[in-house]
């Protein structure tokens, strides 16, 4: 770094130009707002508003939402109660109690697997830590609870509501080829809203038919 001159001792405020004194630049500002207004009024501009809950923003496949406990083909939980997720969690919101599994190949399974959703900060560390791909995160973020009791979700609730619809899976350890369809979908960034709208219309027509 080269040595520079002394720091300026006093501020030198901006001096108005004649045009600014005459309030003339206001016209260009008014033109900007007028342009936006006219465009939007006649439907030429892009409306950005997402009409939640009918339309939804298209989140990426990595979105860190509500957790899912994955299952084996026979329907049992893949979790082996190794406590790595609980150790990795900075919020200490995962509570596990382990039990002996009748199958000798599988050492343990969780008797209890509770996540306190109100404590959880959705950092995804549990997913990173899991050696079995037993916990992943979904794209679901519609959560609200009326009392604290509801907010502690048990292992049944964690695995139940999701039928492993590929599009609803969120943060998970690795992404099989990152889904070319998603890449194509998300190419034009500003069109996300349009895309969500179109998908909404598609699903609506599907349900109608």
């Amino acid at each position: 770094m080269s040595s520079r001159g002394a720091h300026p001792r006093h501020p030198a405020p901006y001096r108005y130009t004649i045009v600014e004194r005459l309030y003339l630049p206001l016209l260009s500002g008014l033109w900007v707002t007028l342009r936006h207004f006219v465009r939007n009024f006649f439907g030429r501009g892009k409306t950005y508003t997402i009409n939640y809950p009918e339309e939804r923003r298209l989140y990426s496949p990595r979105y860190r939402g509500h957790h899912i406990l994955t299952t084996r083909p026979d329907g049992s939980l893949r979790c082996v109660a190794c406590f790595l997720c609980a150790a990795a969690c900075p919020a200490e919101c995962i509570h596990i109690e382990a039990g002996e599994h009748p199958d000798l190949n599988i050492e343990k399974y969780p008797l209890l697997y509770n996540i306190d959703m109100l404590r959880c900060v959705f950092c995804g560390y549990c997913v990173d830590a899991c050696p079995e791909e037993a916990i992943i995160m979904s794209n679901n973020h519609d959560m609200a609870y009326f009392n604290r009791g509801q907010s502690v979700v048990t292992k049944d609730e964690l695995q139940k509501p999701y039928a492993y619809d590929e599009s609803r899976l969120g943060y998970r350890p690795h992404y099989p080829e990152e889904q070319a369809q998603h890449a194509a979908l998300r190419h034009g960034l500003v069109d996300l809203v349009e895309e969500a709208r179109r998908q909404g219309a598609d699903s609506a027509s599907r349900t109608a038919s």
Partner: peptide
């Protein structure tokens, strides 16, 4: 109503308010 998330997504908050 408790809305979890850190922070909740805007949809999450709107869901909470609708609840």
């Amino acid at each position: 109503v408790y809305v979890p998330g850190c922070p909740p997504s805007p949809e999450g908050l709107m869901y909470g308010i609708l609840q």
